[in-house]
Structures are given as C-alpha cells and as structure tokens.
C-alpha cells in the first residue's frame, strides 16, 4: 500500500512547552484515521503541523514522499491536501455556487487573467454542480452562505475543500455542533463523497466515540503530546484503560463498519469509478 502522508518523530514546542513529542503517524492510501484525545492533548497542533501551517520543531512531515513542513495553505492545496475547520468557517456573503467556485477556480488555475469570464466557464460550473450534488447542496446553490442552517454551513465548508479534488483531507471535528441524530448522516455523506470525488484518505479529529468506533480504519490517541496508541478500532476499544485515558467513559458498542474507502457495500462498477 502506498503511503499518502507520513509524520516521523515530529516534535512541536511553543517556547518551553512541548505540545507534540515524537509523534509518528502514517496514512495509507484508502485509510480513514481518527485522532482522539482529551482537550489540550495536541490534536489541533498536530493537524496544523500535518497541514503545513506549522513547521515542526524537529522531525519531518512528508506528503507523497516530499517534505511539506511549513509550506503554507496555498501550496498545500496545490499538492492535493485540503482541510476543513473545527468552527463554522464560510464566506458569509458568497453564495454556495461562488464558494465552491473559489476552490474550482484555484484548482483549474483560472485567476491569472482578471478579464476571464466566470459565468461562461463550463468547467468551473460543472465542477461546482458535481460537488453540490454530492453534498445535497444543489437547491442551495444561489443562497448566500449566511442564509444556510448550521449543519449546511458545516457541509459547505467540507464541500468547498472537496471542490479542490484533494487526495487527502483533514477535518477538525466535522460533526461538532451537529445534533447526534445528524452526525451519522454527515459521516455517511462524507465517506460517500470521498468515494465519488476520488479522495484517497481522511484524517479527522473527533470526540464522539460512537462515530470513531464505527467509521475509522485506525485510531490515533494523543495524550499530553505523545501518541498513546495507534490501533484498529477492534483493538482500541478492547482496552478499557486506553479509553479511560482518552475520554474517561465506557467503550461504545462496536457496530459493523461502514467506513473503509476501498472496501464497501458499493457495487464493483461504482467502486472502480471511484477508486
């Protein structure tokens, strides 16, 4: 299996404070990884290091074999990594169509000539409609983002990351602020979207252990900046001490998995189209 993203013995300090110590982690093609851990464990710092926003104090982060430490968001997008945010993060006055168009315009390199028409660009329009379709936002295309519901805003944020057609996507708590009932449908949508859009890997930070148990291929638990465990859910949730360290609750019920980006209940033809 090819490795998409690899972090090797990454340390990150804020002054004297070690936010991450010797964190190693890899994401293989087709994997869905959840990062868990108590508040202050270093999850967001890790996401920032993995997305090239922060340069690690020592150690190395490589995407498809090349170093991406501190390369910055634009270059990151160009190389095939996208990111969704923990808090709702939209362009309030831009419509859904425009928001998705921003990402499509970057991907298709349309901004070199300020006189180029946007509305007559078929390729951008198609890309926008394709993503809107996947995320059930078609009927909202001409609404400004501020007029969307909280859940739709969250979806739009993730959808705009998808419009970059990334290989790997990192999402900080995709379901935070969403009601428990909707959480599963959002996760299902996300995984379905990955298949359709050809996304090869997901890293998410997630607090909801039900979701983590059900959808992850691997769980990386952080505690005080160190990797406490890096296990498959079956193994992870058999260890009460581990779970207690992460959330301090009983293990959730393991349900049949619906996550893996490669193997699923999809028909063979759909799969070959996606992967």
């Amino acid at each position: 299996m090819t490795t998409l993203l690899e972090a090797r013995t990454v340390c990150k300090s804020y002054g004297d404070f070690h936010a991450l110590t010797d964190v190693s982690l890899s994401v293989a093609d087709g994997e869905f990884i959840s990062i868990v851990g108590p508040n202050g464990a270093g999850k967001s710092t890790l996401v920032n290091v993995l997305t090239g926003l922060l340069r690690p104090t020592s150690g190395r982060v490589a995407f498809r074999g090349t170093d991406i430490g501190g390369i910055g968001p634009v270059e990151l997008a160009r190389r095939g990594m996208a990111r969704g945010f923990q808090l709702v993060n939209v362009f309030p006055e831009l419509t859904v169509r425009e928001t998705l168009g921003v990402a499509a315009s970057s991907r298709l390199k349309r901004t070199g000539n300020p006189l180029r028409s946007l509305v007559r660009d078929r390729e951008i329009a198609d890309a926008v409609e394709e993503v809107a379709e996947i995320f059930n936002l078609r009927h909202r295309l001409d609404q400004p983002a501020r007029a969307l519901s909280q859940g739709e805003k969250k979806l739009l944020d993730v959808a705009s990351a998808f419009a970059l057609k990334p290989e790997l996507i990192l999402i900080d708590e995709p379901t935070s602020g969403v009601s428990t009932g909707d959480k599963h449908s959002i996760m299902e949508l996300l995984i379905d979207a990955c298949r359709k859009a050809g996304v090869r890997g997901i890293i998410q930070v997630e607090h909801d252990m039900d979701l983590v148990a059900r959808y992850s291929d691997r769980i990386v638990a952080l505690q005080a900046g160190r990797v406490l465990a890096d296990e498959k859910p079956e193994v992870f949730f058999k260890d009460p001490a581990l779970i207690a360290a992460v959330v301090g609750t009983r293990p959730p019920q393991l349900r049949p998995k619906a996550a893996n980006l490669n193997t699923s209940s999809e028909t063979a033809s759909q799969r070959s189209a996606a992967c």
Binding site: G72, P73, V74, L76, A77, R78, A82, R83, F85, N89, V90, F91, P92, E93, L94, E98, T99, V102, A103, S106, R107, D157, S160, A161, A163, L164
Partner: peptide, 15 residues
C-alpha cells in the same frame, strides 16, 4: 471577494 469574506479560509482553498 473570498479574501474579503475570510482570508484564512480562502488561502486553504488555494487563494
């Protein structure tokens, strides 16, 4: 316009 609305998000969308 994306920059006006939210420069940081824009940068992650390749702006």
């Amino acid at each position: 316009q994306a920059i006006r609305e939210n420069a940081q998000k824009a940068s992650y969308l390749g702006v």
